[in-house]
Simulated assay, not measured.
Amino acid sequence: MNGTPERDSGPAEPGSEQGGGDDRGSGLPTSAGAATGPGEPARTESLADLLGGRRGAVDATLPPLAFAAGWLLGGESLWGGVGAALAVGAVVAGVRLRRGDRPRSVLIGLLAVCVAALIAVRTGRAENFFLIQVLSNAASALAWTVSILIRWPLLGVLVGGVLGQRARWRRDPALLRGYGRASWVWTATYLLRLAVFVPLYLGGQVLALVVARVALTWPLVAAALALSWVVLRHSLPAGHPGLRHPVAPPR
């Protein structure tokens, strides 16, 4: 799912620090901080710290930019755009592997560029390079909405996976409610992209699609990480120990 926060370096270890209360002044519950050495203050962390996402979003904008550059420099040559996108996509994949990203995640990203290029070449339409983006955002919007309605909000699934909690977070009514509310922020990002991408795609506006792709990828992911964290933080009651410490109700 494009634009979904992802931490490529693997699951983070649950913190061992027990904290109390919600430090609203810092914007983070102190108990959500990562464990530190003896005598050191807890290092606070946000959803951006836990999930990453912004770095991967920046990487995702490079092949479309290369496609636009190759398309323009080649006199609106489809092959020029596709060749540039594939070359840059391969370089991005190599850089991601060198910095330790998961091979599966890297291959999925490269495969998406290859499929987008294949669709554009087979149809002979440059705007079809962005068809995968349109479809993936529609699928993501649907998946996030359904996950909230069935009380398995995807933000909770992602954060719980990173923290190694499995489904323990679902037994905490406050966390379940908070993840549900914060997941609507991510649903809105996919709907916003669709509202922009679909008219541009139908109008064959290749350069406008590239601009929209860049503007609605890493800046939007950064904004969604920040806003969903604010929503989640304010959904937790005072004294809640934080994301790393789900509170199961007494039986």
Rank of each mutant, 00 (worst) to 15 (best):
R54H: 10
G56V: 08
G81A: 12
L73F: 08
F129N: 01
N128G: 11
A68Q: 08
A90Q: 06
G80N: 00
A66M: 04
D59Y: 12
V91Y: 05
G37T: 04
L111E: 09
R54S: 13
V106W: 01
L73Q: 00
T61N: 09
A93Q: 04
G83P: 00
L78E: 00
L111G: 14
R54T: 15
G33A: 04
S77Y: 03
G37M: 00
I108V: 15
G39N: 02
P41M: 06
S77V: 01
A84K: 02
A93H: 07
V82Q: 04
L62C: 06
G124P: 00
I119A: 15
G52T: 05
T61E: 03
L78W: 01
R96I: 06
A85M: 05
V82G: 02
R102K: 12
V92R: 03
R125P: 01
V106Y: 04
A126S: 13
E76T: 14
W79A: 11
V58F: 11
L47P: 01
W79T: 14
E127M: 14
D101H: 11
E76M: 12
A84Q: 00
S105G: 14
G33I: 03
G94N: 06
R96N: 07
G94Y: 08
R96G: 03
V115S: 14
G56N: 09
V121F: 05
A93T: 06
G100E: 07
G52P: 02
R104T: 15
L78S: 06
P41F: 03
G124F: 14
P64Q: 12
G70W: 01
R99C: 08
L118P: 02
G124M: 10
A112W: 08
R104S: 15
A93D: 05
G81N: 07
P64G: 13
G81V: 00
P38H: 08
S105A: 15
L86D: 02
P41R: 06
F129P: 04
R55W: 09
A116R: 04
W79E: 11
W71E: 05
A42Y: 03
G100V: 06
G56M: 06
V113F: 01
E45I: 13
P63S: 09
V95Y: 11
G124Y: 05
A93L: 04
E127H: 14
I119C: 13
L73S: 07
I119K: 09
A85L: 07
A126W: 01
A120P: 00
C114W: 10
R98D: 12
V121H: 04
D49K: 13
P103V: 03
S31F: 04
R99W: 07
E76Q: 13
R98I: 13
A87T: 13
G56L: 11
V58E: 08
A87C: 13
L110S: 07
A32L: 11
P63K: 01
I108Q: 15
V95M: 10
L118M: 09
E40Y: 00
L110M: 08
L62K: 02
A90V: 09
R122G: 09
R104V: 15
A60I: 02
R122D: 12
E45L: 14
A120W: 02
G109L: 00
L47C: 11
R104C: 11
A112S: 13
G100L: 05
L107G: 14
G89F: 02
S77G: 07
E40I: 04
W71M: 07
E76N: 14
V113G: 06
A85P: 02
